[in-house]
Design a protein around this nucleic acid. Structure first.
Lengths: 330, 330
DNA sequence: TTCATTTATGCAAACGTTTGCGGTAAATTT
DNA sequence: AAATTTACCGCAAACGTTTGCATAAATGAA
């Protein structure tokens, strides 16, 4: 069965293509009578405008591109879910590509986006991407880019991210409130700016407001490493009374060790983490955490994108604030 | 900066558009000399073909549509990751929309896909979608549809899914091997065909091969319900020695109760579930599970799609087999 | 030299829209 | 009755490609 086009409708109705086109979009030039006829036939023939023709003609695509390191990720998938919702509301669709934290993939993805003339792209930098000239290329093409989560340092870009320092500080506050004496603070890959920021903020805050509290700082690269590290440190004579996990990954490792040794939470040890919320809810008792919502970040990113498209430039950096979610682990 | 087009290249080189077009795609008609000149200029001017024009002209889009109930889901996001990988390899991009298990959204999504003339769609039915005529409309438009996971009953569709019955049977086998005497088997929403299939297969197998084993079957709709159910049943005088969780969601509930009561796994109770693998690995001891890989399913779905596009019809139903992954909980 | 063939290139239509401009008839005003 | 306005509608170009066909030049065969 053929696709019905404006031409077809026009022929059947003995009208010109332009009239049909205008009738379909309620142009005031067209009489109500014709409009009705056109709509009727369009419905019965199941007319659906060809997006490509429109995009070619109007030079705008109603599609956003999204680059994430990985789709299968608790944080990014909620980010995606958020912009998907907003996009739909605003008549946009999403094209999602994953970089697998690989700069080459990132480049290819951008290329696909350019070729498809997307209206904008949401980009999360790969861990080790340094060269941003590809993104300049997007700007040359007047395609706005909103960076999220892992963002470039340069202030000429539009970016949204979590309030990383705030997260760490909130966690520190809670730890101090608890009256912790000895805390083990576990952070992620030290090469990542997010690890650096969180660690620095945490450490600074602790030193300033709880100088007497004894803190041990370590970095790990995986769940398993975190588990091993916790194991090792917990077996020492001086036991920790509180552990802080910078990410879900780390929390998972810590909790495995805690379960393995049947350590009582929060009696023997207090646990606090930074998380999206899903993982902390898996355990009993439910873990207290500082919330970093990919969902919220997505909403914010979308607002920025829209502003960028409509109004022009918004070269600021916005952050979504963090809040403490009380569990039973502290 | 203007987008460079074939026309622009042609002008600058004093060639016709068609020559440039052909040169760019290594058409044998074009002399090596011109080819080189064209490529050189195209590179320096950063030419990138306009996908819309191509699609309009060729009536084919190099884009696949994907409908999932939710992106933020352990199973579906690994499915998506798989088809994303394959798509990229084959020069396709993905357009991903979520139905939120809502039939109306599903319809809208399909519409967007039609308007964008996607080359094919991967669809997971919403829980309560009955009317499939929208999908017929896709076929009318010669857009192949590969259903996955939640698939229609009718055999005229192309579908891939997990071997649901097999999963349940493998679990049952392991439970029998363990020499279980009293098992609590918890299934999901009884309205879902997947729950029905798994339950039926499980029950039948147990009755046939372990008639003396006492099984209690229950259905739950959420993690919290599963937790409550486990709580309730475990407090009875006759304790279960094994629990089977049909999904991650259920397992999560069960494990919370187990942690809360500090029940020893596997000594006091054996645990087995059906899962993607992520959740079972979170606990200590690591939970044994029957693997249903969204990733594998994605790969399979893609193969089907390609066959459908290239060869013509492939109206079969394919399933990806399940395998047991040994943890320490049995 | 002449005709046939190969090699290299250009012409123009088509894909399905949108939209500025112009046109005609009817309705309204002088 | 003539002039002007209003209400509808159509023409045609443009968006950037692809591709069948025609054309011109260069080569080969006779």
């Amino acid at each position: 069965m053929m696709n019905t086009t404006l031409k077809l409708l026009a022929q059947q109705l003995q009208l010109s293509i332009s009239t049909v086109s205008r009738a379909l979009k309620d142009h005031p030039d067209i009489s109500t009578a014709t409009k009705e006829k056109v709509h009727a036939l369009a419905n019965s023939l199941d007319y659906e405008p060809n997006a490509y023709a429109i995009q070619l003609r109007t030079q705008s695509s109603k599609i956003f591109g999204v680059i994430v390191p990985a789709i299968a990720n608790l944080f990014y998938d909620s980010f995606i879910a958020a912009i998907e919702e907003e996009s739909r509301k605003n008549g946009y669709a999403l094209m999602i590509l994953q970089s697998s934290n690989n700069t080459e993939n990132e480049l290819n993805n951008l290329k696909i986006f350019r070729q498809n003339r997307v209206s904008g792209v949401f980009a999360c930098l790969s861990a080790h991407t340094q060269n941003l000239e590809v993104y300049e290329k997007m700007s040359d093409r007047a395609i706005p880019v909103v960076f999220f989560d892992i963002v470039p340092k340069d202030n000429k870009y539009t970016k949204v991210r979590m309030a990383d320092e705030r997260c760490a500080i909130i966690a520190a506050e809670k730890i101090i409130e608890r009256g912790a004496k000895r805390v083990l603070a576990i952070f992620g890959d030290p090469a990542l700016s997010i690890s650096q920021k969180r660690k620095q903020a945490f450490q600074q805050f602790m030193e300033k407001y709880a100088a007497k509290t004894h803190c041990t700082y370590i970095n790990t690269h995986s769940s398993a490493e975190a588990e091993a590290a916790f194991d090792k440190h917990f077996n020492k004579s001086q036991k920790f009374d509180t552990v802080f996990a910078m990410t879900d990954e780390i929390l998972i490792g810590v909790m495995k060790s805690i379960q393995a040794h049947n350590i009582k939470v929060p009696k023997e040890i207090g646990v606090i983490s930074i998380s999206n919320g899903f993982i902390p809810s898996l355990y009993h008792p439910v873990i207290s955490y500082v919330e970093t919502s990919g969902y919220e970040l997505g909403k914010l990113a979308f607002v920025q994108m829209l502003a960028n498209i409509k109004g022009g430039k918004t070269l600021s950096e916005l952050t979504v604030d963090a809040k403490f979610v009380e569990g039973e682990s502290m």
